[in-house]
Design a protein around this nucleic acid. Structure first.
Length: 293
DNA sequence: CCGCGGGCCTGAGAGC
DNA sequence: TGCTCTCAGGCCCGCG
């Protein structure tokens, strides 16, 4: 659901309505999301400008003119939509018109850009936090995150070093945000298929005894990069909840090679395999037992 | 320190 | 048709 490509799609959608705009009003309609809202949440946003809207892992981060940053997480089912963008914003006019309210609309930002930005989250696994921008890397949300997979610094040597001493499977290692930031169940399965590596393979086999990256690490880095970049280009994957800001669906679900394709032929050229589903760490894993080794 | 599994939460879909 | 059950998965936490 919202993994790196979906969050990046949301970021790009929100950016024109948030960057350079001030919070005119903040309405928390339901404060009991995954974590309680910070004290004085609305007061600490209202009147301040969003200087930049960034993404780190699966988090959206809005750097504010107050010196604080707003950290937003979509959880499993969170989405944003923009209402009533008008050329000439009038303070106080953007409070989430009743006629447009939907179930599970939990937070509304009225921005000076004229946009009302609505956060909707049926399952309430999402959350919002505030913290000093300067101390963001030390924030509990950010502290333990591994490298950004689309950052050029993320390479085979780095991945091998992070996996070297892990006794767990590749599936579990790649799902761990301390190893790579932003992958979830879908893109882990997809990257492993593209790299032709079994999800059950030991993560430590990405490094030699001495710690150097193996060819498998190289293949996996390439596969992760490719699948994420392709998915961002497609506007993410829409299974159930993910939507672009304008409500349009993402397209990448049509490019899944293994995810939720149990029993279908493996799409790898000339591979006679059939996609199989197994459970690892209580989660479904989809892979081809023939070409993924 | 590490890995595993349970819990949080709601809606969709299956099966009776 | 309507009920109940299972499953979906990001992330935290407690246990061994």
């Amino acid at each position: 659901m919202p993994e790196l490509p979906e969050v990046e799609t949301v970021r790009r959608g929100l950016q024109p309505f948030m960057e350079g705009a001030r919070f005119l009003a903040v309405d928390v309609r339901r404060p009991d999301l995954r974590f309680p809202f910070p004290p004085d949440f609305a007061r600490r946003l209202t009147g301040f400008t969003v200087e930049r809207l960034l993404r780190r892992a699966k988090y959206l981060v809005a750097d504010l003119s107050s010196g604080e940053s707003l950290i937003m997480h979509l959880g499993m089912s969170g989405s944003f939509r923009v209402l009533a963008a008008e050329a000439e914003p009038v303070p106080g006019r953007y409070h989430h018109p009743r006629s447009e309210a939907r179930t599970h609309d939990h937070v509304v930002f009225a921005m000076s850009s004229g946009a009302s930005i609505v956060f909707n989250d049926p399952r309430r696994f999402g959350f919002m936090q505030l913290g000093p921008t300067a101390a963001l890397p030390d924030h509990s949300c950010m502290r333990n995150l591994g490298p950004e997979p689309l950052d050029p610094a993320f390479d085979a040597a780095m991945l091998a070093a992070l996996c070297r001493r892990r006794k767990t499977s590749l599936k579990a290692a790649l799902s761990d945000q301390r190893v790579v930031a932003g992958l979830g169940n879908i893109y882990v399965c997809e990257a492993l298929n593209r790299a032709r590596l079994s999800p059950r393979r030991k993560a430590s086999t990405l490094a030699t005894r001495a710690g150097a990256p193996t060819d498998h690490a190289q293949a996996l880095v390439r596969a992760i990069r490719t699948v994420l970049a392709d998915a961002v280009r497609a506007g993410g994957s829409s299974l159930r909840d993910h939507r672009r800001i304008d409500g349009a669906l993402g397209d990448f679900q049509h490019s899944f090679r293994v995810y939720d394709r149990t029993g279908e032929p493996c799409p790898t050229p000339r591979c006679p395999g059939v996609i199989r589903r197994i459970v690892q760490g209580g989660r479904s894993t989809y892979y081809c037992p023939v070409c993924q080794r």
